[in-house]
């Protein structure tokens, strides 16, 4: 595998935003990243913002409340906490803090008024969600040490992520002063600083790679920093390189396959060998498409992007598998530097 690995600059980042096209496994990768960054005694926070309880499903725990909870112990004694941010709860939190709504707050929520307010200004939702994330990144304990070494955000998919992160644009919807405005300014600063990296998860297929490359351009245009491209569900290549092109074009020497199998004591009828050959052609086509996708990731961006690779796990992703994936990331250099006390 020719991975570019994890450059030192990414270890300076404290907010790791993870996005990707739907179906590429971004939640899984975000979770594995949070585990990897926590290994060796660090503490990380894994945040989701889309109300889908993807983290709880992945870690097989009951639905997460709007509250930071420990969900896993990392290799080498670190810990991962998780938080499901909910825009309505975040808005109520503000109202409590600045306007003392008291009991009325809950009733308003039941009536749908809170949802209405967050719907009225679509930008408000994003400002509230990113605002909460920023608060987690910058929160310090009594000794002035950041509570989290790193925060990993399972962000909306590539189609929406730049809009979501581009709080500057969202602020146009909001009043030009007041507590939320102040908070939003802080978010803009954090997201455009070297403390933030936006990683993109992709499969080695044409469409997700196209979306990844488009998103990289959008991020750069919005003044944000693309982090690593994480190629997920990479499958092994069994055919020798020299055979791939021919096999992908349907040229597999069935007689040679049959003879080879016979030498291993497998005397298979012709239709079974045909089935194996058909599988081989499909395998070669996939390998061929994957190398084309990798080549696009290598050549199309104007600046080279660090790339990590994660294998496809045939048995699917359970808690054990998450640790496996985290270890893969650690081996490819994923880490976070200790944060100096401010």
């Amino acid at each position: 595998m020719t991975t570019t690995d994890w450059p030192a600059a990414l270890s300076e980042a404290r907010l790791h935003v993870v996005s990707g096209k739907g179906g590429t496994g971004k939640t899984t990768v975000a979770a594995a990243l949070a585990l990897a960054l926590a290994s060796g005694g660090r503490r990380t926070l894994l945040v989701e913002v889309e109300g889908r309880q993807g983290i709880a499903q992945l870690f097989d725990t009951p639905p997460l409340p709007y509250e930071e909870r420990k969900i896993a112990v990392a290799p080498g004694g670190g810990e991962v906490r998780a938080l499901a941010v909910d825009a309505e709860a975040a808005l109520l939190e503000y109202f409590e803090l600045f306007y003392r709504l008291g009991m009325a707050g809950r009733t308003l929520r039941r009536m749908g008024a809170i949802e209405f307010a967050t719907t009225l200004a679509p930008g408000l939702r994003d400002v509230l969600l990113t605002g909460k994330v920023k608060e987690c990144v910058t929160r310090k304990d009594r000794d002035g040490r950041p509570v989290y070494d790193a925060v990993v955000l399972d962000a909306p998919p590539t189609g929406r992520v730049v809009n979501f992160l581009d709080v500057t644009a969202a602020m146009a919807d909001l009043a030009k002063s007041g507590p939320i405005h102040t908070q939003a300014k802080g978010v803009v600063q954090l997201l455009h600083s070297p403390l933030t990296a936006v990683h993109l998860v992709t499969l080695l297929e044409d469409l997700p790679v196209t979306e990844t490359l488009e998103t990289v351009d959008e991020l750069v245009a919005a003044g944000m920093r693309p982090g690593a491209v994480i190629a997920n569900q990479v499958r092994p290549q069994w055919l020798p390189d020299r055979s791939v092109a021919a096999a992908a074009g349907g040229r597999v020497d069935a007689e040679r396959v049959r003879a080879g199998l016979a030498s291993a004591g497998l005397d298979l009828p012709a239709d079974v060998v045909d089935g194996l050959v058909a599988e081989t052609v499909e395998h070669a086509q996939r390998v061929h498409a994957e190398s084309a996708a990798l080549a696009r990731l290598d050549t199309e961006p104007t600046r080279p992007l660090p790339r990590l690779e994660l294998p496809r796990l045939i048995e699917g992703v359970d808690l054990g598998a998450l640790y496996e994936l985290a270890e893969e990331l650690t081996e490819q250099g994923v880490s976070v530097n200790a944060v100096p006390v401010a």
Partner: peptide, 13 residues
């Protein structure tokens, strides 16, 4: 017989 071996392994996957 590298071709046959590859075919068997990709089939197993």
């Amino acid at each position: 017989a590298p071709l046959a071996a590859a075919v068997l392994r990709l089939h197993a996957d």
